[in-house]
Amino acid sequence: MRSVAFVAFAALAALVAAPASAGDYPWQPTKPITIIVPWAAGGSTDQVTRVLAGELELALGQKVVVINQSGASGSIGKRNVWRAPHDGYTWAAGAPKMLGTYKLVGLFDTAIEDWLLYLDAVTPTLIGVNPDTPYQTMGELLDAMRARPGQVSVATAGVGSSGHTTIEAITQAMGLTYKNVSYDGGNPAVIATVAGETEVTTQLSTEQIEMARAGRLRILAVVADRPIEMVGLGVLPPITDWTGPIPNTLTHFGMFAPADLPAEVIRTFDMIWEERISSSQALNDYAEDRGTVFMAAFGDAAQEAVAPTVRADAWTLHAAGRTVMSPEELGIPKP
């Protein structure tokens, strides 16, 4: 395959490899580092994490092994990271916003402040429907939900996932109901919609874009407050055209570990993010191709970036009756 992407990738790999020296960082790992992806292999988190792992390998001069441990809305894999020694050798990857809501839905007793976040991308969700369904516009889909309460089936990656909070935010804003069908990850949820098992999916753009480009999904709207152009799909209308303002559901992605890592490990990763990740061409190209936005952040900036979505998700989930306590008990103010 002599595709442009491949040539570009190879050239980049060579380019990035040149200044690589593992000696500049205060922490030098002596054994391979493990990143646990709490979702199935091949999904969007898995892919971007493997690209990220390659960048980290170049920076640290040590192998970075990616393991998939899916299940229970991603909480099983993250719990295993928490249980492993807090030494910088075991990380989790994915959407850190869920760390802020696990405790609320009774999945995992943790708080987002207990984790150290390193972000690399921010992704919107899309409203995609199977092309055989009659819904041509977002308005028609909302009408159908009104006409058949609790009957329009929506595939998501489980409680608290981006797809789930998106559909909850929309239906709550409009006073509608729907049928929630959860899958093991964003990819299986999208495939179920392509296959016609469910009518709608509200998963991330990265997970839907390829099927949408091939005409196997019809994209009705992008969940944002302004139109967004995506390669191969043109300009997508924002959901707010139909719903008015709804809570923020932008999803940040990255890797994270317990916040009480040794100081030299934290300093090392801060430096890597500052110097390498924020200017990584490989990650940038990957992001553009997959319908997402490249964005590197760490430390307080990362926590601040994620906070609005956590707040919105927490109250959306609470209003949906899926929480075991009030977000206020966790100190999450009402937006």
């Binding site: 992407a5 570009a8 892919q47 390829e210």
Partner: peptide, 11 residues
């Protein structure tokens, strides 16, 4: 395949 820039899928 995704990592290596090939995009398997309907296209």
């Amino acid at each position: 395949m995704f990592i290596h820039g090939v995009r398997p899928g309907p296209l």
